[in-house]
Design a protein around this nucleic acid. Structure first.
Length: 650
DNA sequence: CTAGGGTTAG
């Protein structure tokens, strides 16, 4: 008989959490009835008690406490218990501890190896899973069993590896095991060989609902919702009922192919069979309804769920974000925060896009949004990510950079460089260069220029334009022009950059000259060109020219002025002192002026000391953007300059 | 919870 060492119990258990303390009591109760042989093996008939113990560990900390307890009581010698620890750590998301535990097991059996392989697969570390499996074959001298192969097949990231494993399965004669066969069906369909998968499926001697699901999801993952639905009909004709997995994969396929009618029929089936509170089904429904039906439908599903996970939150946030409602999306993000749910990469992608959609004024008023940027210092999120490809990084960098969070963008880029397997590409340069430009980091920008040349991308229009912009904004207009002379300039993109950079440096005449060159070379200006041109005019006081370009844009190029263009015009008239003209111009605008338009007028009123119009402008401004403190400061400046001290106080 | 089939994105 094996008994717990009482002192261990007293000393260590007292430091445990209440739930784990309860566990240990259960464990000691269990050991009274458990038979341990002298080498520490448990009686296999009592596995249920041990399961209970392991299942009570709901986080890694608990598992480590239990682990320590098992070590001090000598039970870690038991390879069965150790393998359970391997599994438990993997389940709780800490594979590295699985590995440590695994390495310390002296005599490993098939169960031990299977546990380690599936631990890697569970956490998405497929490469390591395959390596572990090879090690198993080469070093253990043991024969794999039925349990070994399904995870290994899942870990195969290409068909060549998959076929090798398939051969081993054939040699061992495991191919008609229901689980193994389903995994093979899934493997072939994942890589597009739906025909091979179908043949395997048809030859299967026994098929359960899991086999059907493997076949159906095979079609779904190839974007073939119609064939998947045909298999569904076949399945039902054989009397096999759709389960939650079938429903989830079909709903996803329907959402992808836009077959909403079928999707809604499946939804009906789901309701009829009481599956309408299933987490994964609801997540799939949110996705489908938000894409094709309405936000309201998606929201109703979300609201009625009793359990929501990160995917649910990400889905509903993305739903609002992609339906042009960034404020609601941001609100949901905050609620998620308050519930203590940790965001992941997909949350960040949505957040970046939300920030991009919020108007500039909304953003500047939210010191709060900036704070979010800091909190979501991407580091924490990225640490837990299994897959980090270059596009993920680019997305994040762009998200920050386009929202004026340049230093965060630079921080993310810096982190990215720590991962040597990530090779920056074209998209990386296009996202990081504007960030350096924004903070005026010429040295860093030039470093990138060097790397760009090495990658032969300096003559790319997009990268080249970012470089032109960088040099120009950092005050190196000559270098900018030199680069400009080298990039292809059949499109408006590089032209816009040089025109705007001359404009902001007050070289209005040169900007107009460049615009003439552009027209002479037969390049068609776009709406951005005119924004650059109009602002160049206003910086240099070229009122008449600006007005004539504003007309040219509409009459000759049929470009409808945007709020940006209107803002430039107000700025142009206002700076030049034509304040009433500017005010009338706003009055006659066919669209509702936003904060930037009123802001331009207010700025002009400050320059020219016009208190009356300044007051009107600021009143309008507070109507459209009540939260921006910047305007209050501007207004109080106007009062102060004109000596109206009560106004300043107000 | 030593095994298969399932959800969010650029």
């Amino acid at each position: 008989m094996f008994s717990l060492v009482p002192t261990c119990k007293g000393r260590h258990v007292s430091k445990f959490s209440p739930s784990l303390r309860l566990c240990c009591q259960l464990f000691s109760a269990a050991t009274n009835t458990l038979q341990f042989s002298s080498d520490g093996f448990a009686d296999e008939n009592k596995n249920d008690d041990i399961d209970l113990l392991f299942q009570s560990c709901t986080n890694v900390h608990h598992a480590k406490q239990l682990h320590a307890f098992l070590v001090v009581s000598g039970k870690v010698q038991n390879i069965f218990l150790s393998a359970r620890l391997v599994n438990r750590y993997a389940y709780l998301g800490d594979v590295s501890f699985s590995r440590i535990t695994f390495d310390l097991i002296p005599r490993k059996d098939v169960y031990t190896w299977n546990s380690m392989v599936s631990a890697y697969v569970r956490s998405g570390r497929f490469r390591e899973a395959i390596d572990c499996f090879s090690q198993f074959l080469l070093t253990s001298g043991l024969r794999p069993d039925f349990y070994t192969f399904p995870p290994v097949l899942k870990a195969c990231q290409n068909l060549v590896d998959g076929k090798k494993i398939h051969c081993q399965i054939l040699k061992l004669g495991f191919e008609w095991d229901v689980f193994v066969a389903a995994s093979l069906v899934h493997l072939y369909s994942r890589f597009g060989f739906v025909g091979v998968a179908r043949r395997l499926f048809d030859e299967m001697p026994i098929r359960d609902v899991g086999s059907w699901n493997a076949m159906i999801s095979g079609f779904c993952q190839n974007g073939n919702a119609a064939d998947a639905l045909d298999v569904l009909i076949e399945m039902r004709s054989e009397g096999v009922k759709m389960d939650r997995v079938t429903a989830t994969s079909l709903l996803t396929a329907c959402a992808q192919s836009g077959d909403i009618l079928s999707g809604m029929l499946i939804h009906l089936y789901v309701i009829k069979h009481g599956l309408d509170f299933d987490l994964l089904i609801c997540n799939a429904l949110i996705n489908m309804y938000s894409k094709y039906v309405s936000l309201g439908h998606a929201r109703r599903i979300f609201d009625q769920m009793d359990v929501r996970d990160l995917v649910s939150w990400n889905s509903i946030i993305a739903a609002y974000e992609q339906n042009d409602d960034p404020m609601t999306a941001l609100g949901l993000f905050c609620s998620m925060q308050l519930l203590g749910i940790q965001p992941d990469f997909l949350t960040l992608v949505s957040l970046a896009s939300i920030l991009a959609q919020l108007s500039d004024s909304a953003k500047s008023s939210c010191g709060y949004v900036r704070k979010l940027g800091a909190i979501y210092s991407a580091r924490t999120v990225f640490e837990g990510l299994p897959i980090k490809d270059v596009i993920s990084w680019n997305t994040l960098i762009t998200g920050y950079a386009q929202n004026g969070l340049a230093s965060e963008a630079i921080e993310v880029y810096r982190m990215m460089q720590e991962y040597k397997e990530i090779i920056p590409n074209h998209g990386t340069w296009v996202s990081i260069l504007p960030a350096y430009t924004h903070v005026g980091a010429l040295q860093q920008g030039m470093k990138i220029h060097g790397r760009v040349i090495k990658n032969c991308l300096d003559l790319d229009v997009f990268v080249g334009t970012c470089l032109i912009d960088m040099y120009a904004k950092c005050g190196r207009l000559d270098d900018a022009l030199l680069l400009f002379s080298q990039v292809p300039r059949k499109t408006a993109i590089p032209w816009n950059a040089v025109i705007s950079s001359h404009g902001v440096h007050g070289h209005g005449e040169k900007a107009l000259k460049l615009f003439k060159d552009m027209l002479d070379e037969g390049v068609k200006p776009d709406h951005v060109t005119f924004v650059s041109l109009l602002s160049a005019c206003s910086h240099s006081g070229l009122v008449d020219e600006g007005q004539s370009y504003f007309h040219m844009m509409q009459e000759q190029y049929r470009i409808k002025p945007s709020l940006k263009h209107y803002g430039c015009m107000v700025d142009l008239l206002g700076r030049a002192g034509h304040l009433n003209k500017a005010y009338n111009f706003i009055d006659n605008m066919p669209v509702r002026p936003d904060a930037s338009v009123w802001g331009a007028l207010l700025g002009a009123c400050r320059i020219h000391g016009n208190v009356d119009l300044g007051r009107i402008a600021s009143e309008r401004l507070f109507e459209v953007d009540s939260e921006n403190v910047g305007y209050y400061v501007l207004l109080s400046n106007i009062y102060a300059n004109s000596g109206e001290w009560e106004g300043v106080e107000r």
